[in-house]
């Protein structure tokens, strides 16, 4: 990729899970040879069906899982190496995560103030009053009131809880946020609310966001660039508009064709495109690689497919 400055670079990242021993050994390649890069202050969307490895990618970047292979570089520093105290500190100072399930992601035995203030306490802030003040400020920012600080998570609605989760991630002033399906557990009206909040905070704090989701319309609304994952691999990366206007990879086409349309007349006759890797690709002779078809538009394809894609886009070889 170009010598542009990236905030986060993921190079050939692999995360395999194994179970069993000897001949019963099973390896699941949850993330297999994934490479992408995120520019500062950009929102990078990662989409794909359930179980395709989006969440694992996010969690491997923030080191909830250790990578099997490959490199992750954050702002020029490798963060995929052996875990040291100093690296953990660097990681947690710079990257924060927002989780999918608003019920699961808040400890039911802690008050909101404890949950949100924990990041500060971990960073050595001792003054309880100061922590409280900052927690209150943060709660105001996400649309909650001071009074909510003494409450327990079960007293809140899903959207409110997710905003608490956002406050928890934001209070440590990270440079990057990994948002792991932050809205997929919320109902549609609340989704917009939370997404708008994230957008506002992003602009206000100059955040970079890695946005993991399976809802394409949400990703389209929110992301500058989008990566499509299938079965542990990244199959297409492009600018948001490009991806929607001229999808190349058959899986991307299949995904796009699955978006419901808000027009009942056309929705009734919407054509779904199927994707079957066995049928759609012939990799018996040529090995597929990640290729830049046009500037900022990468597709995972074999040389002959590349030719076809180029033709489709009307670019000469």
């Amino acid at each position: 990729m170009a010598e542009e400055k990236y905030l986060l670079e993921v190079k050939n990242l692999c995360r395999h899970f194994t179970s069993g021993k000897g001949k019963n050994k099973l390896t699941v390649k949850a993330v297999d040879d994934v490479s992408f890069a995120v520019r500062p202050a950009e929102t990078f969307g990662l989409v794909g069906e359930s179980g395709c490895g989006k969440t694992t990618t996010g969690r491997t970047i923030i080191r909830l899982y250790d990578p099997t292979d490959g490199k992750v570089i954050f702002d020029g520093r490798e963060i995929s190496g052996p875990m040291t105290k100093e690296l953990r500190q660097y990681l947690t100072d710079n990257i924060a995560m927002i989780f999918q399930d608003p019920i699961e992601s808040l400890n039911p035995r802690m008050t909101i103030e404890e949950i949100v203030g924990e990041g500060l306490a971990v960073r050595g802030m001792k003054d309880k009053e100061e922590i409280r003040k900052m927690v209150h400020e943060m709660l105001e920012k996400v649309g909650l009131t001071e009074e909510h600080a003494t409450r327990y998570p079960h007293e809140f609605s899903g959207g409110q809880r997710q905003r608490v989760g956002i406050a928890r991630a934001m209070i440590v002033k990270p440079r990057m946020i990994i948002a792991d399906e932050p809205v997929s557990a919320l109902d549609v009206s609340i989704q917009a609310q939370v997404i708008n909040l994230l957008n506002d905070l992003k602009e206000e704090m100059g955040l970079t966001i890695l946005f993991i989701a399976h809802n394409l319309s949400v990703v389209k609304y929110f992301s500058d660039r989008i990566g499509v994952m299938y079965y542990g691999r990244l199959v297409e990366v492009a600018n948001g508009d490009d991806l929607y206007a001229k999808p190349l990879h058959p899986y991307t086409k299949a995904l796009l064709s699955a978006i419901p349309e808000p027009n009942p007349i056309t929705e009734r006759t919407r054509q779904r495109v199927d994707y079957d890797p066995e049928r759609d690709h012939d990799y018996s002779e040529e090995q597929p690689t990640m290729v830049e078809v046009e500037p900022d538009h990468f597709v995972y394809c074999s040389p002959s497919e590349l030719k076809a894609y180029r033709k489709q886009l009307g670019i000469a070889d």
Partner: peptide
């Protein structure tokens, strides 16, 4: 659980 993971990502 996610809240434990969340705390871990905060460096607890």
């Amino acid at each position: 659980r996610e809240y434990v993971l969340a705390a871990r990502t905060l460096g607890v």
